[in-house]
Design a binder for these strands. Structure first.
Lengths: 164, 164
DNA sequence: TTTGTTGCAAAACGTTTGCAGCCTC
DNA sequence: GAGGCTGCAAACGTTTTGCAACAAA
């Protein structure tokens, strides 16, 4: 799930959000954003906080606060998968999110599918304005599936191939 | 999202699960199940616990414990929508779950779409065995959408119509 | 100067755990 | 009878909150 972005553009987008909402441009906020966009894949708050602490003085409360703003500004997505703590993910512009979640071991694997994506995007509603969507397929991963000694009759095995 | 079920069948399915796993058939467990299947829509543990307490002596721990077994037995689904506490839903046999979630007010509305459902069900994976899926569309509900004084150009407004 | 934002620590909250006694099997 | 299950209360881990000091506007 590669994305093109430069920190400048991100900062710009966030600055606009801050100004629009009459919020202050504090160094802490930009430090958090920078770290988030340097992080690959999911991250948890505690993780991010620890990473930040090493070269910057921030409090947990500020990290939570800033992430919340980033969500509002459409720069971060919050996932609440099975497990104790929420997972977050950077989210440059609108994107969609497809996951295979193992109901036994909890492992999460991303996949993508253009046909599904387009079909969902086509759909419109009378009173709801869709932004992004996320699709979770719950099931058993290869490790947890008893009858999986390599499944052969896959019609279209396109995990991690269809992207972009 | 109406479902046909009788408590007997549910009890039967759960009993099978218990026996298969060498677990005991305690009255508490059946009291929890009964209450769950008498509940419409989502519920939270605290809610369920309070409802049960009025006419039965159960502990919170037992409620959590039993719900966990019901999930394993495929009788309950756990949702972790934005918000503090998990939401649960009875789940008789395999079903899928489609929601419109307002990113502003957090309201959740169910919808369904046969085309999407079928397309997703068609998909197969080399190393993953899908069970059920859930699709979350995040966006703005009518109340929170500034430019929604009744949207007219909806191509196919089929919320709550496609459900079988 | 004003007032939003910060760090800190305490509190809150949902959920999990330990344990003695109970009850299914 | 043995061992899984219960209720209870304490513990846990994440997230939120209150507040005085600080700093962006």
């Amino acid at each position: 799930m590669k994305e093109d972005f430069s920190l400048d553009v991100i900062f710009e987008q966030f600055t606009q959000y801050l100004e629009k909402n009459k919020l202050r441009k504090t160094p802490e906020r930009f430090a958090v954003i920078k770290k988030v966009f340097q992080t690959e894949g999911f991250f948890e708050i505690e993780q991010l906080y620890n990473a930040l602490k090493t070269d910057y003085r921030v409090s947990l409360a500020t990290v939570y606060n800033t992430i919340e703003h980033m969500i509002q500004a459409n720069l971060v997505i919050k996932h609440q998968f099975p497990g104790n703590s929420s997972k977050y993910e950077k989210h440059f512009n609108k994107q969609n999110h497809y996951y295979l979640i193992c109901t036994k071991c909890g492992s999460i694997k991303e996949f993508s599918d253009l046909k599904i994506k387009n079909l969902i995007k086509m759909k419109s509603f009378t009173t709801f304005e869709p932004g992004y969507h996320s699709l979770n397929l719950f099931g058993l991963c290869s490790k947890c599936n008893p009858k999986s000694k390599k499944k052969i009759n896959s019609i279209n095995a396109e995990t991690k191939k269809t992207t972009k």
